[in-house]
Every structure is written in C-alpha cells, then in structure tokens.
Simulated scan of single mutants.
Amino acid sequence: MSVLIIIPARFASSRYPGKPLAELRGASGQSRSLIERSWQAAQAVKGVDRVVIATDDTRIQTASEAFGAEVVMTSPDCTNGTERCAQAHEVLGGGYDVIVNLQGDAPLTPHWFIEDLVSGLNDAPGAEIATPVLRCDGMTLNGLLNDRKAGRVGGTTAVFAQNRQAMYFSKEVIPFTSQPYGAQEGTPVFHHVGVYAYRPEALAAYPSWPVGPLEKLEGLEQLRFMENGRSVLCVEVASKGRQFWELNNPEDVPKIEKMMLDMGLD
C-alpha cells in the first residue's frame, strides 16, 4: 500500500493571515515556522512513501524549500485543503493507494495518529475517507468551551455512531454536557483531529460535488462528503500522554508553545 502525505497551506487565512509562516518556539527556545513543524510531524510517520507541501503562495514555497520540503504549486481557486490535496495528487500523477491530508496548522499531531488512521482505513475496505477523533479530557473540554464563550473557534468536535460512521462535525461543542469533569477525566466529547485519509477515487471526485448548506455554515470541508451521501469513518486515537491542539487563532501560539515546553518538544 503506497501512502502520500500532503500538507495543504495557504497564506490568505481569514482568521490568521500568513499563519503557515507563524513562528513557534520549541522547548529549547529554537523557533521554527508552523509549516516546518507540520512537515516535521509528517516526516515522523512510519510507512509513508512521500511527503509534499501543497500551496498557491510563493512565500510559503520559498520558506518550505529552504528547509528541504518538496512543494507542489496549486491553484488559488482551491477553496479548502481537500480540494488542494485533490489537485496536488493530480499534479503528481496520482498512483497512491491512500492520500493523507495533514493540515498545516497541526504541528502537535503525533505520528501514531496518522499511522492508526491509515490502518483504520485499510481495515475498512468499504470506507472512502477516514479521520481521527480524540476523546477530550476535562482540561481540553474546558478549553473548547472557553474559546466558544470568547467568540473563538478553538477546535472541531465530532459525534459518530456505534459503527464509527460520523453523524456530524461542528465548531460548536457537541454533544451538550453540563456535568463538570476533572482535568484528566474522560468526557463524552470527541475532539476532531484535522487529518484525513482518502482513497484516490473519492478525493478526485470531491471538487466536482456541490457545496451544501452545512459546509457553508460550519466551514468544515468534511461535511461535503456527508452532504453528498458519502460516509466518513471516525478512527479513535489515543493521546498516550501527549497534549494536542491546532493553531486556529493568534491566541493559540502561546498555548501551543507552552504545550511544547511541557512535553519537551523542540
């Protein structure tokens, strides 16, 4: 089974323009860009044949090539990371059995998240797309709730059926729970990890599907699969003591840097 990781990155983010080039300090104080740290996370994944960064911006291209990444230039008309991955896979000539979309704002993604995701898709031959979910502990749930109270999107949550097929994804915190939880206590809320594994046929078809009202409302690209009658497989992953957060807003930079310091990540 051949596996390609694509890291889609665009400069013109509405919430955080220039986000891929934002600097993050590691535990030793060394500073590296968000895109470089996301690329390093991809390099740590076992069983991967190729890692590329897909962008439409020459500033990201120049910065990425400077630290040794392979870059594929894509159209500025791509509306989200999945469309950019589809175009990049086509530019590369296709031929991969599984294409992984590791979004460029998730530098804390542990290698086993992606390894377990690929294995989960491989073990479900009927599935066309899979994505990881991580059960929130009390500290993470409170972080999500506090962000929403402050009017920020701190992360996406997922609900899924017993067969692990996704029922919905939202930038709101779902399902509702009023019970207080301890910092390390498991909760009924699952944090959606912004990684996807696609089979090539589904990825190639995605840009031709219409954008539905739920994708427009939530701004979540995976909802296009669901609104067009395709199932999304949720693969539960384990934190193994690692903290996880995505860089969605400028306020997330110190939060992620503190997590890196706490975990001794450079």
Rank of each mutant, 00 (worst) to 15 (best):
A27N: 11
G29Y: 10
G29A: 09
Q30K: 13
R32F: 09
R32A: 12
S33Y: 00
L34Q: 05
L34D: 00
I35K: 06
E36H: 11
S38M: 03
S38W: 02
W39R: 01
W39Q: 00
W39F: 15
A42V: 04
Q43S: 13
A44M: 12
K46R: 15
K46L: 12
G47A: 02
G47Y: 02
G47T: 03
V48H: 04
D49C: 05
V51W: 00
V51H: 01
V51F: 02
T55Q: 04
T55P: 01
D56V: 01
D57C: 14
R59D: 10
R59Q: 12
I60Y: 01
I60N: 00
A63E: 15
S64N: 07
S64D: 06
S64C: 08
F67V: 10
F67L: 10
A69T: 05
A69M: 07
E70V: 12
M73Y: 01
T74D: 00
T74L: 01
T74V: 15
S75R: 08
S75K: 10
S75T: 14
D77I: 01
C78W: 00
C78N: 15
T79F: 09
T79M: 13
T79G: 15
T79D: 12
N80A: 08
N80M: 09
T82P: 00
T82K: 02
E83K: 08
R84V: 08
C85V: 04
Q87T: 04
H89K: 02
E90T: 13
V91I: 12
L92T: 05
L92F: 03
G93W: 06
G93F: 06
G94L: 10
D97N: 13
D97M: 04
V98S: 01
I99V: 15
I99G: 01
V100C: 03
Q103R: 13
G104Y: 03
D105A: 07
D105P: 02
D105E: 13
A106H: 04
P107Y: 07
P107T: 08
L108S: 05
T109D: 05
T109P: 02
P110R: 03
H111T: 11
H111K: 15
H111V: 07
F113S: 04
F113K: 01
I114Q: 02
L117T: 08
L117W: 07
V118I: 14
S119N: 09
L121D: 05
P125R: 08
G126S: 10
E128H: 09
E128Q: 14
E128P: 00
I129F: 09
A130W: 05
T131Q: 09
P132T: 09
V133L: 09
L134F: 11
R135V: 13
R135D: 07
C136F: 04
D137V: 10
D137H: 12
M139G: 03
N142L: 12
N142S: 11
G143K: 08
G143D: 12
L144F: 07
L145W: 00
L145E: 11
N146R: 14
D147V: 01
D147C: 13
K149L: 13
A150F: 04
